[in-house]
Structure formats: structure tokens, C-alpha cells
Write a protein that binds this DNA or RNA. Structure first.
Lengths: 194, 194
DNA sequence: GCAGCATGTGTACATTTGTACATATCGAAT
DNA sequence: ATTCGATATGTACAAATGTACACATGCTGC
């Protein structure tokens, strides 16, 4: 009874196609992502992909937007559970060291995302929102500069750990996170917090 | 008289094609990089590209390897000029805040590089070497963990600054770099240095 | 039941793509 | 000067690609 709800017998098809697009991107790269491969991955005929999406670029854009939003939500959720500066630090360490950000698939997709965003302003806008959300979540516990530093750290270590044959372990990450967060007292006063 | 030197009347043609490939990648993305566009950018006929490179992938691989090596050399050169911990810190700040790493073109190419490397082991190997070189350069002045932290920082801040509408200024970067480098005394002893 | 329309599908087609290759051209060794 | 191989180029072509579209199908409101 809602407005346009419950279209027909496969109401989630559109979404399934978007998810399939991310799968294809993840294992072939954007440069080898085609209508036909996406259709095959989604288990729908070719015509179905062009029915839901005007162009391939539009589909990829939607897929990347979804990816960014999911990553952003995961980040926020992880930090929402924190109650004080210490647990926030732990959350950041968790994010870096595997549970959220560092899955190979996510990382791989993020490389493709960055490259894509650089040429597609709407996707770049979503990425900016994502970054801002992450920072806002961090700013519940840290001053703005520290928040930005941590955010960049998550990014950088995640990438390097994925390339490196011997990724940093939790203790090392913890050490580095502590350095970035501990010294804020040097230049900044205390921050609002619970 | 050297072995195979001085082929013919356009001895740098091969290299020009590689450079052109990077140009095309930079402004169209890997997914829109074709033999024909590269040929046009290099000012050579199509046949010339296929003459020098077995396949398009081989050409892209070579281009990315060259990119990584150039970036690596630039990083090392910048740090080679440092004489002590303080000047090393300054070098790192320089690298982050613009002179080496943060040019939009380089950053853009690096996204494409990461994505490409994830699917092309030889390129991934070069990237690892690059990372190791960077760390080795940093380890002249800092302990290994600090070196890794700094390296990741360069990566992360560079990326975020390129996305952000208001990039961190030099003072902020300097503050963060100081945090990462200052606290090494907490857990580690002193390091070899000049 | 029926009409109307969103949903769904198979096929067709012009373009673009990677690559092969026949042929040309030039440099260097003899 | 002639030979020979590396360098260079234009053309050709099968395969893949994005997209259009004519047609089918079943849901919804009457």
C-alpha cells in the first residue's frame, strides 16, 4: 500500500544488481566490469541491467555510493559503542587491525572507489561526507586535529598493511594510536566528552 | 658502439609511449585507457604501440612500475638531504604538504596504481619495494615502528587532503608528525643516527 | 474479467577494442 | 653497394562492448 512499493515478483532485483556490480568490481576491477558480467553475477539477463540503470556509469556510481555509505556506517557504528577516550582508542585500533576496514575486499574496492571518485564528483561528495562523519564520530572524544590525524592513520595503515607482507600487529598499532592521541594536551585544551 | 644502443632515428619512442600511457591514465583512468588513446597522446601511430609492447597490460604494468620507482626515488631523495632527526621531520612534512606526494596528478595515479597492483603481482612487488625503501630512508633517523607510522601517515594524510575541501595546513601536519615521532622514547630506546 | 502499466527479457547493431600482420624504411656491417 | 635485421606503420578483423528496442508477462485497480 505504500507508494511505489512491491513492484513485482522480484522487488530486490535492483539492489541485487548493485551488489553484483560491487562483486564484479572487486574481482575484476572497474576496467573489466561490464553489463554482461554484472548480469551474470546477479543472475539476471542483460536486459535487466539496462532496464534499471540508464548507463553503466550510473550503475557504478550507485554501487560506489552504496559502498561508501556502508563503510561510513560501519565506522560510525563501531565508534558509537565507545563511551570514553580509552574505548574510542580501542575502537580505532579495531577498525585498523581488521574487523571493519582491513578486509581485503573492502580495501580493494576502496582503491577502485578513490580512482572512480576522482572523476565523478557525486561520488567524491559522498566520500567527503563519509570523511566528515568519521571525524565527527571521533570528535566526540578527541579534538579536531587529533580526529583528522586518526582518520588519516586508519587510511594509511590500512593500505600499507594490505600491501605489506608482515602487517603491523595490534600492539604496534596501539602504540602508534596512543602517540597520536596522547599528545593532544601539548597544544590543545581538553575537549567535550562524556 | 654499446651493445644495443641507438636503435634508429627515434630512440626514445618507447619511453615516450610509457609516459603517454601515464598521461592517459591520469586523465581518463585505466578503464578508459586504450592503445589508440596512448598512441595519440604519444604522437605515434597505433602500430608503434603494439610494436613495443606485447599487450596493453604489459604496457600499463611498465608504466606503473615506472611511476612507483619515480615516486620512490623522489621520496628517498628528499630524505637523503636530511642530516638529523629534525631535518628528517621537516622533509616528511614537505613530502606530505605538497612538494612531492600531494600533486593531484600523482595522487590520482597512485589510486589507479593501487587498484592495478592488487591484480598484478609484479606491480605489487614494486610497491612493496617502494615501501621498504621509504622505511629504510626513514630508519636512518627513526626506529622501525616510527618509520612505519610516518610512512602510513604520509599516505593517509595525502589522500585525505586531496579529498578534503580544507586540507590540513603545514602547522597542523607538523604537529601530527611531532606526535608520531616524539613519543618513541616511551617504549623504545634510542636509535642509530649520525 | 479486463485494461493499463511497470516489470522483465532476448535480440540486434553500430562502435570500440586488442591484436595480427604485410609491408615499408632505415642503419650498420661487410 | 648490398644485405640483413631492427624499427616503423597502415590496415584489417574478430571479439566484446554499451545501448536501443520490440516484445512478453504478470500485478493492480476497477
Amino acid at each position: 500500500m505504500a507508494e511505489g512499493a512491491a513492484r513485482r515478483n522480484d522487488p530486490e532485483r535492483r539492489q541485487r544488481i548493485v551488489a553484483a556490480a560491487l562483486d564484479v568490481i572487486a574481482d575484476r576491477g572497474v576496467s573489466n566490469t561490464t553489463h554482461r558480467r554484472i548480469a551474470a553475477a546477479a543472475g539476471v539477463p542483460l536486459g535487466s541491467v539496462t532496464y534499471y540503470f540508464e548507463t553503466l556509469e550510473a550503475l557504478l556510481t550507485e554501487a560506489f555510493v552504496q559502498l561508501a555509505e556502508e563503510a561510513s556506517d560501519a565506522f560510525r557504528a563501531k565508534l558509537a559503542a565507545a563511551t570514553d577516550r580509552d574505548s574510542a582508542r580501542e575502537a580505532v585500533i579495531d577498525i585498523i587491525s581488521g574487523s571493519v576496514w582491513a578486509e581485503p575486499r573492502t580495501l580493494l574496492l576502496s582503491y577502485e572507489l578513490y580512482a572512480f571518485a576522482a572523476r565523478h564528483p557525486p561520488v567524491a561528495a559522498i566520500m567527503r561526507r563519509w570523511m566528515n562523519n568519521s571525524r565527527a564520530a571521533l570528535e566526540r572524544f578527541f579534538d579536531p586535529l587529533t580526529a583528522r590525524g586518526l582518520d588519516a592513520f586508519v587510511e594509511g595503515i590500512g593500505i600499507h598493511n594490505s600491501i605489506d607482507l608482515r602487517p603491523l600487529d595490534r600492539a604496534a598499532i596501539s602504540d602508534l594510536v596512543a602517540r597520536v592521541t596522547n599528545r593532544q594536551l601539548l597544544s590543545e585544551a581538553d575537549v567535550h566528552d562524556g
